[in-house]
Design a binder for these strands. Structure first.
Lengths: 137, 137
DNA sequence: ATCCTCCCTGTACTTAGGTACAAAGTCAAG
DNA sequence: CTTGACTTTGTACCTAAGTACAGGGAGGAT
């Protein structure tokens, strides 16, 4: 037969062996059949699914979200397109919010470093510190 | 005397009581003196320090980095200004890198959703799914 | 004296996504 | 028929930054 052992599926999908078992436990991949001795037998579809998981993670989806995504895509009710779309649009919004937060933080830090470079306090202490310390009291 | 109890210092600095004890354990605040009965006695400086920690966290510093920041600012060698500045510049770079990553992810997701809205596959499955599944094999 | 609220310590639990390890069983080659 | 590489399970550990809780002591008001 053409089944793959766990080390083979792990190598082909570029993850750790333990990760494969972990995904099985989290129900992100189906329970594979076993040999008489209890060894897991995987298929190339399992490799695809693990790659799907990894690509989705890179796009910012959590494992729970990916599980949803998988169940939607396994669901053959023709309307799943909308659901996946909705999911992605929501994720885009979240990413945009994150970016905005980071921009704001960056601006604050930049302002502080400009102050710090320009005007040294007389005691030699960085204005970043004093500004953070006494800030809003 | 004018010392603060742990619940008072927690309230004044807007953190949980447990967080105060946690910061003490992590050595982010100095070990406070105790009453005969073992109650911690805090000062207003402790409140300031906790606020400093919280503000720094908002700017993306980890507790370990904040510990460094504190030790630099406690250090009276006149050159600490440079060190803090360096730290902040590095943090700005990290934040910029994060923003770039997120922009890239956002673009990928946006491209996928455009495809998804425009062209439905004949089987009614969202192109996002098929693109993620078969991606780079 | 009793009650309620606060405080103490130490330990375990949380989220997310894994990684590591021990003890035991299996498979194939030499 | 033994050796070495592989697999199995279960459990514990990791980071980060806390939160929760159990069991006991303390302080002050009634």
């Amino acid at each position: 037969m053409t089944g793959l052992k766990i080390s083979e599926v792990a190598e082909k999908s570029n993850v750790n062996i333990e990760t494969v078992r972990y995904y099985e436990k989290r129900q992100l991949i189906p329970e594979p059949p076993r040999t008489r001795a209890g060894y897991r037998i995987f298929s190339l579809e399992d490799v695809d699914r693990i790659k799907f998981i990894k690509r989705s993670q890179e796009l910012g989806f959590t494992l729970n979200e990916i599980k949803q995504l998988i169940s939607i895509s396994d669901d053959k009710t023709q309307v799943n397109s909308e659901e996946v779309l909705q999911y992605s649009v929501q994720k885009i919004d979240e990413i945009e919010a994150q970016i905005k937060d980071l921009e704001k933080i960056k601006k604050t830090l930049q302002d502080l470093t400009v102050q710090c470079s320009g005007s040294r306090s007389s005691d030699g202490r960085c204005p970043i510190i004093t500004s953070l310390t006494g800030g809003d009291r």
